[in-house]
Computed example of a mutant assay.
Amino acid sequence: MAAAPRCELCRARAAPLRCPGCRLTRYCDVSHQRTDWISIHSHICHLLIPVLGPQPCFHSEKDRKHGKEQLLRRQESLIAVALSTAQGFVWSGQPLEAIPAALQALRFSSRVFGSGSTQLVPIYLLLAEASTGEHCQHGNAGKGAGRLRQAAKYLSQAQWIVLQTPDCSAALQSKLHRGLGLFSAAEGNLDQALYHLANDVSSLWHDWLLSSLHRHQQVLQAQAEASPFSEEEEVIEDRMTEGRREEGTRMLRAVLKVREQGPLQHPGETARALHALAMIHYLGLDLAKAQEVGMKAFDLAKQLPQQDSLETIGHLLELINAQLSHTT
């Protein structure tokens, strides 16, 4: 016996109402139908029919393969529309309207990529941000408190996926820390908020500085190969980036202060912040300071169970030492 259809929005109750457009989506009452229509259904009603409706029968392997590829493209299009719509609501300060759209993106992403895929992490974080924003609008009473509990569940799901993915990108980990930081702030746990937001800041600066260091090495190589016309352009670039180096130095020192004073010790994150600060000093030609901070990062990285960062920190120290020997 087939299970009774459930409401598209709450999934918790029988759904006698059917969308007259796609005739595939059901609701428990008019208010849930209206909420879903405003959030996402008006954008995807026509897209659901070829995805969720009866699929054609194919008589050859070539046609079956083409049909699967076409279905995948349609599902990916649905995910993109739902995700961008949800983000738009969050950015415009309408967290409640964002939730149905984000849930639609989550359902189709789970179907396409699998429930443990890192593709789901940004959606869980968006759902947590929307739920946290809804809590902040309504306070600790009634639905507001429930939204905060729901945000915690979404964050737990995102965190579980990241922990199960050893090669998870630094950018995704940074987004996770940002989500955890915003949630901790809404919860009133400022120490945890500072810790996670500090992780977010150090990750962003670390990645950007690695790219800057690579570009700097390319410039040095070009100068070594005698390009007399590039010197003026590089001086201009240095002037443009001076303010950003000062900003990075202030931010990373603040991060390290949080690390030192916080109740939780995370040597891996501290080593990354030190590495980033050493790169800033090197790019700013404060070689003595770069060497001092770089050695701290290197010594700390040697104590970690996974020593993936030793090579990049060691490479930075080699560049610093080469520059110091060249100037003495």
Rank of each mutant, 00 (worst) to 15 (best):
D29T: 13
L106G: 02
G179D: 05
E311S: 04
H177P: 00
F113W: 12
V90W: 00
S31D: 11
L316T: 02
A101E: 00
L106Q: 00
A152M: 06
E187N: 13
H32C: 15
A14R: 15
K65Q: 09
S110C: 13
S230W: 11
T312N: 03
I79A: 00
A271K: 00
M251W: 08
L9S: 03
I161P: 01
S227K: 13
F298P: 01
G179H: 07
T327L: 10
V112I: 11
S203K: 13
S110A: 14
Q261P: 02
L48T: 05
E129C: 03
Q87T: 12
W160D: 04
C19L: 06
S212T: 07
Q157N: 15
Q192C: 15
S203M: 08
E232L: 07
L126N: 04
E233N: 03
A130L: 06
A141Q: 15
V90I: 15
Q159M: 10
V51P: 00
R64F: 13
F108T: 14
Y195N: 07
G294V: 01
G116F: 07
E69P: 01
L17I: 14
R111E: 15
K296G: 08
H196D: 04
I79T: 02
L72K: 14
Q303V: 03
Q94W: 11
Y195S: 02
S77L: 09
A276R: 00
S211Q: 14
I236A: 04
S184T: 02
T165Q: 06
A185D: 08
R74W: 11
L209E: 09
A98Y: 06
D238N: 08
G21H: 09
Q157M: 07
R26A: 11
K68E: 07
G314T: 01
R23D: 08
A14G: 08
A322D: 15
G116L: 12
L264S: 10
G268S: 07
I79Q: 06
V30F: 10
S202T: 08
F89Q: 03
V81Q: 05
Q137D: 12
T328W: 01
L17T: 06
V121R: 00
Y154A: 07
H196Q: 15
L182R: 03
I236T: 12
Q164E: 04
P228N: 11
R73D: 07
D191S: 09
L103E: 04
L310Q: 06
F89V: 07
